[in-house]
């Protein structure tokens, strides 16, 4: 049994989080003063700090809008790694593992959990560096499998349905004007030609009025 680890964040930085516990119970965390403690499933608190800091450089919070911190990307990544994806349940992992041509993609043995653990180790004291030095460190590893995964996961955490732990308060979707899943555009598809249609986004749960579980909740 792993020790319970928590990610402690300033509450005002969060857009309002809908989280699920390991038991699948929804917990809504609203923006407030003080700090919130989010239970972690995979990362240690120190690891989560490093990953959160790196995601913030990939998709920063700045004058152009919120970024990885406000949307809770690190929580999204934590849940993905804790689930079947993190253990490579859906990748062909039979050997032999042989270096191949680039056209065959990633052929390594390490699963996403292991790739993160190694990547985080290499980032070292990353969370405590000034932003410019953080960027340099990320530039140095841009071509690694770890960084490419981290970049992809940051975008996933920004823009996936909040049931997966990111896109808190739907602010990722608000940022880009994505309405979320909408059951019908029959009346809009041929009317809004060249004009933006930007309703307030809704999550899958709000649209279907049903509790939907992400694949990461699958237990095996």
């Amino acid at each position: 049994m792993r020790r319970r680890e928590f990610l402690t964040m300033p509450a005002k930085s969060l857009g309002g989080l809908l989280l699920y516990t390991l038991a699948g119970e929804p917990v809504r965390v609203q923006a407030q003063d003080g700090t919130v403690r989010v239970p972690l499933r995979f990362f240690t608190a120190d690891e989560a700090r490093v990953v959160a800091a790196a995601c913030e450089r990939i998709f920063p919070s700045d004058e152009n809008g919120p970024g990885a911190t406000e949307t809770g990307v690190v929580i999204y990544i934590d849940r993905q790694l804790a689930g079947p994806y993190g253990r490579d349940r859906y990748r062909y992992t039979k050997g032999p593992f042989v270096e191949s041509v680039p056209e065959h993609g990633y052929q390594g043995q390490a699963n996403p959990r292991e790739i993160y653990r190694e990547g985080i180790r290499l980032l070292g004291d990353f969370a405590d560096l000034p932003a410019a030095q953080q960027d340099e460190r990320l530039q140095a590893i841009e071509q690694t499998v770890f960084f490419q995964m981290l970049r992809a996961h940051t975008i996933e955490g920004m823009f996936s349905d909040p049931m997966h732990g990111g896109n808190a308060g739907l602010i990722g979707w608000q940022l880009i004007g994505f309405p979320g899943p909408v059951m019908s555009y029959r009346d809009e598809i041929d009317r809004y030609h060249g004009l933006p249609w930007r309703p307030k986004p809704k999550s899958l749960e709000q649209v279907t009025r049903r509790r939907v579980k992400g694949w990461e909740e699958e237990v095996d």
Partner: peptide, 14 residues
């Protein structure tokens, strides 16, 4: 109806 989820279906290819 409950599968309009880009992550699980279009990215993770459920």
């Amino acid at each position: 109806a409950t599968t309009m989820d880009e992550l699980d279906y279009a990215i993770r290819l459920r």
